[in-house]
């Protein structure tokens, strides 16, 4: 009962902030999908500075990062938001994977411990979001349970979402497969790294969160 009441209050506040056009926009997805790369791209495009560090080793972002007061414009429309970059959501974390990626044992164990906390924080922050960009690696299978669980949770919480099929610059990228997996949502194929199709991304963002 308390949980239902909490959710109702959050929903009221969420709608109020949406009307105010200043929202909390979350970047969610599995590890190494390119959430921080996209956050950096948005920040460079509109603020002229990057937001966080990226790495080929999974779970580089292990703490919630917030960039406040970003305003994007398209014609007469304007959208202001706080951008929340979250740690990747996973169902398993093995420190030995980090050793294989080149870290030493001590660093790997520390990273694994921080990564587990990061996943928990990401889930806890879900209720705070007014809109979410789900960042998926378009070279990977979109039907993974983490993706389905994440999108199902956003749907259950009635949080508007935009799916980004990232890494479109890679040969193995399959944007159509991501679109086929989630036909009821807006899916936009981009390369956050090279800035490909960012205009379409911003248009879609206005549609979903504007």
């Amino acid at each position: 009962m308390i949980e239902v009441l909490n959710r109702f209050i959050r929903q009221v506040f969420r709608n109020w902030f949406r009307k105010k056009r200043h929202i909390k926009l979350g970047l969610y997805g599995p590890p190494n999908g390119g959430k921080t790369t996209l956050a950096n791209r948005i920040c460079v495009d509109w603020l002229g500075e990057e937001m966080g560090k990226t790495s080929h080793i999974p779970h580089e972002t292990r703490e919630i990062q917030v960039k406040e007061q970003i305003s994007i414009k398209s014609g007469k429309k304007e959208l202001s938001f706080n951008l929340v970059d979250t740690p990747g959501i996973a169902t398993k974390i093995d420190y030995e994977d980090f050793i294989k990626a080149g870290l030493n044992a001590k660093e790997s164990k520390k990273r694994a411990k921080e990564a587990t906390k990061g996943v928990i924080d990401s889930i806890k922050w879900l209720d705070e979001m007014d809109a979410v960009i789900v960042v998926l690696d378009s070279t990977k299978d979109p039907y993974s349970q983490v993706n389905i669980t994440l999108i199902g949770n956003l749907e259950a919480r009635k949080i508007p979402l935009l799916i980004v099929a990232n890494k479109s610059d890679l040969k193995r990228a399959n944007i159509k497969k991501v679109q086929a997996a989630f036909p009821q949502y807006s899916v936009v194929g981009i390369s956050a790294k090279y800035g490909n199709s960012m205009d379409r991304f911003y248009e879609q963002l206005f549609e979903v969160a504007g």
Binding site: T91, K92, V119, I123, T149, G152, N153
Partner: peptide
Amino acid sequence: KEEETELIKAT
């Protein structure tokens, strides 16, 4: 769906 995320947290 909420139980699935709680399962991930518990994991």
